[in-house]
Amino acid sequence: MRKHLKIIEMNRATGGQRFANYLIDLLALFALNFVISLASMFLYEMTSAYFFYFYNNGGMVWEFLSGYVISTVYYFMWEYFSNGRTLGKIVTGTRAVSIDGEDASTTQIWYRSLCRLIPFNAFSFLGENGWHDTLSQTRVIDIKKYLADRQIKEEIEAIGTKEIA
Rank of each mutant, 00 (worst) to 15 (best):
A28I: 02
I141S: 02
A122N: 11
E63Y: 12
G58Q: 08
L29Y: 05
L23S: 07
F52Q: 06
L43M: 15
L5W: 04
G130S: 06
Y22H: 10
N57T: 10
F34H: 12
R85W: 00
Y53Q: 10
I156N: 10
A28Y: 01
I141G: 01
M60I: 12
K162P: 00
Y22M: 14
W131Q: 01
V140L: 05
E79Y: 04
L126N: 05
Q108F: 07
K144E: 15
N121I: 04
A39T: 15
R18V: 08
V140H: 02
N11P: 04
A13N: 04
I24A: 04
W131D: 01
Y44Q: 06
E102A: 13
I141N: 02
I152Q: 13
F64Q: 10
L32I: 12
I90A: 05
G101F: 02
S66W: 09
F54A: 13
F120S: 07
F81C: 11
L65G: 11
L114R: 04
Q17V: 10
Y55R: 09
A13F: 01
D100K: 06
S48I: 01
S105T: 15
G101A: 04
W131T: 01
T14N: 06
I24T: 05
G59Y: 05
E63K: 12
S48E: 12
E79V: 04
E154Q: 08
R150Y: 04
G67F: 01
I90K: 09
M1L: 07
D25P: 07
A31C: 11
V73G: 09
Q108T: 06
E79W: 05
S48F: 03
R150S: 11
F123L: 15
K89N: 03
R95H: 03
L126R: 03
Y75K: 00
K145D: 09
I7F: 00
G127K: 12
K145M: 07
I99P: 00
N121F: 07
E155I: 10
V73H: 08
Y111S: 11
T72K: 05
R150T: 08
R2W: 06
M41P: 00
N121M: 10
Q108E: 13
Y55H: 12
I36P: 02
M77A: 15
F81T: 13
P119N: 09
V91D: 00
L27M: 13
D103S: 14
A13R: 01
F64R: 07
Y80T: 08
E9D: 11
G130P: 00
L147R: 14
G130A: 12
H132R: 03
A39M: 14
N83K: 14
V69G: 08
I24Y: 07
A165V: 11
N83S: 14
I70G: 08
F19H: 01
K145W: 00
C115L: 15
V91I: 11
S105C: 05
F19M: 12
